[in-house]
Write a protein that binds this DNA or RNA. Structure first.
Lengths: 117, 117
DNA sequence: CGAGGTGCATCAGTGCCATAATACAGCCAC
DNA sequence: GTGGCTGTATTATGGCACTGATGCACCTCG
């Protein structure tokens, strides 16, 4: 039955990207600290170094990490808060409307569910 | 910036499937009524008849629609409620935990947001 | 300088998705 | 029966995203 799983079968590089973003927001990858090397993270996650690099890519484009070629990638100051703010804005604008519509269709109430567990 | 859009770039046949499921749940495709033919819906949606057929496929497997070969496909009795129940269960089990975790990470509160707009 | 770590570019392979063109099988109204 | 509508099967093709392997450029440290 069923099948509505937008989050399932997600490309690896996107999963990694989300995971890294979460780690930055949570301070697990502290500001100023060096991110795991592409090879290291690849080995740890059982992925390809290129896939990890692809996951890192966008953080570079957005200026959230600083690349020191031949050395490593470092989390810039303010990255966590900037990332959280951007993600929150994007979530509210692009995901939440659909999620809320879907819940209403299914007869669910977000307010109740926060209290549920 | 950003990129967390699991729902973006979704295969057409899955979009159609979701759209059809929503129509059934909402009663837009009433129980006992005939679904649009694969060719008709394909033309309307600007898709390929095969792609539409692929979208219809799972509803047949799940016994939510009855196929009368040479005639058309009909929504079976109780399909809406069964579909809603299955989707709800799947949503709560597979999607909601991630969504809630994500919202908490972003500092959002579902309960507040239902009242917001 | 040399070894070992970094990120990065290039090429190739793979699989899923979507489309297309037919053709077939079943049902109905006329 | 005929024409026109249904769903379905077959085959082929193109595109695209993801993944993989290799090699290169760069930096640090001893």
């Amino acid at each position: 039955m069923n099948a509505n799983r937008p989050s399932a079968n997600r490309p690896v590089y996107l999963k990694l990207r989300d995971q890294i973003a979460a780690a930055i927001i949570d301070g697990e990858y502290a500001e100023g600290a060096m991110l795991p090397s592409v090879r290291a993270l690849a080995a740890e996650q059982g992925a390809n170094p290129l896939t990890v690099a692809k996951a890192y890519q966008q953080f570079q484009n957005d200026g959230l990490v600083e690349v020191q070629r031949g050395v490593g990638m470092y989390v810039v100051r303010g990255a966590a808060e900037r990332l959280r703010a951007a993600d929150r804005e994007a979530f509210l604008r692009e995901e939440w409307p659909e999620i809320r519509a879907r819940m209403e269709r299914l007869g669910l109430n977000p307010a109740d569910m926060m209290l549920a567990d």
